[in-house]
Amino acid sequence: MLSPVIDTDGAPFWRYAARGELRVQACADCGEVRFPPRPCCPHCQSFASQWRAVSGRGRVWSYVVPHPPLLPGYAEQAPYNVVVVELEDAPRIRLVGNLVSGAGAPLDSVDSDRIRIGARVQAVFCDGLPQWVLERP
Score class of each variant (00 low, 15 high):
93 I>P: 11
6 I>L: 09
81 N>I: 08
10 G>Y: 00
3 S>G: 11
99 L>I: 02
20 G>S: 06
131 Q>H: 08
49 S>V: 09
27 C>G: 12
7 D>R: 13
64 V>A: 13
25 Q>V: 13
136 R>T: 15
24 V>W: 10
132 W>Y: 04
71 L>W: 00
116 R>A: 12
108 D>P: 05
40 C>G: 01
25 Q>M: 15
43 H>F: 12
118 G>N: 06
68 P>A: 12
115 I>P: 07
23 R>H: 14
74 Y>R: 09
19 R>Y: 06
85 V>N: 02
131 Q>F: 00
61 W>T: 04
83 V>G: 07
120 R>C: 08
109 S>V: 06
31 G>V: 05
128 G>D: 07
106 P>G: 14
69 P>G: 08
100 V>A: 07
85 V>S: 05
136 R>N: 15
135 E>G: 03
15 R>C: 03
32 E>T: 14
86 E>D: 02
70 L>S: 06
5 V>G: 10
126 C>S: 15
39 P>F: 00
98 N>S: 13
72 P>D: 11
73 G>R: 11
90 A>G: 09
103 A>N: 03
133 V>T: 14
52 R>M: 01
79 P>W: 03
80 Y>N: 05
116 R>K: 11
44 C>Q: 01
78 A>T: 07
65 V>T: 12
40 C>V: 15
10 G>T: 13
105 A>E: 08
80 Y>M: 09
69 P>H: 09
43 H>Y: 11
56 G>I: 04
22 L>R: 04
66 P>A: 00
59 R>I: 12
84 V>S: 13
133 V>F: 00
36 P>F: 06
61 W>N: 13
52 R>K: 09
51 W>D: 08
79 P>I: 08
118 G>T: 04
48 A>K: 12
88 E>K: 10
59 R>H: 14
36 P>N: 06
73 G>V: 09
101 S>M: 01
129 L>C: 10
122 Q>L: 11
96 V>Y: 01
33 V>W: 10
65 V>K: 00
73 G>Y: 00
30 C>R: 09
100 V>L: 06
115 I>G: 04
120 R>F: 02
8 T>I: 13
48 A>Q: 11
8 T>V: 13
95 L>S: 08
40 C>Y: 10
58 G>D: 00
25 Q>A: 12
3 S>F: 02
122 Q>T: 13
85 V>R: 06
37 P>D: 02
66 P>R: 01
43 H>G: 10
100 V>T: 10
87 L>S: 04
25 Q>G: 13
5 V>L: 15
111 D>H: 09
97 G>H: 05
2 L>A: 07
8 T>K: 15
136 R>I: 10
95 L>V: 14
7 D>K: 11
65 V>P: 07
16 Y>L: 10
60 V>Q: 02
25 Q>S: 10
125 F>N: 13
71 L>K: 07
134 L>C: 00
133 V>D: 01
9 D>H: 09
104 G>D: 05
61 W>S: 13
31 G>A: 02
134 L>F: 02
16 Y>E: 10
40 C>W: 10
71 L>Y: 01
65 V>A: 09
10 G>L: 00
17 A>D: 08
56 G>Q: 04
108 D>F: 03
19 R>C: 15
136 R>E: 15
81 N>Y: 04
3 S>R: 14
17 A>H: 10
48 A>T: 04
57 R>H: 13
52 R>G: 00
23 R>S: 07
106 P>C: 07
50 Q>A: 01
54 V>Q: 12
122 Q>V: 06
33 V>K: 14
78 A>V: 03
104 G>I: 05
132 W>C: 02
28 A>L: 08
96 V>S: 11
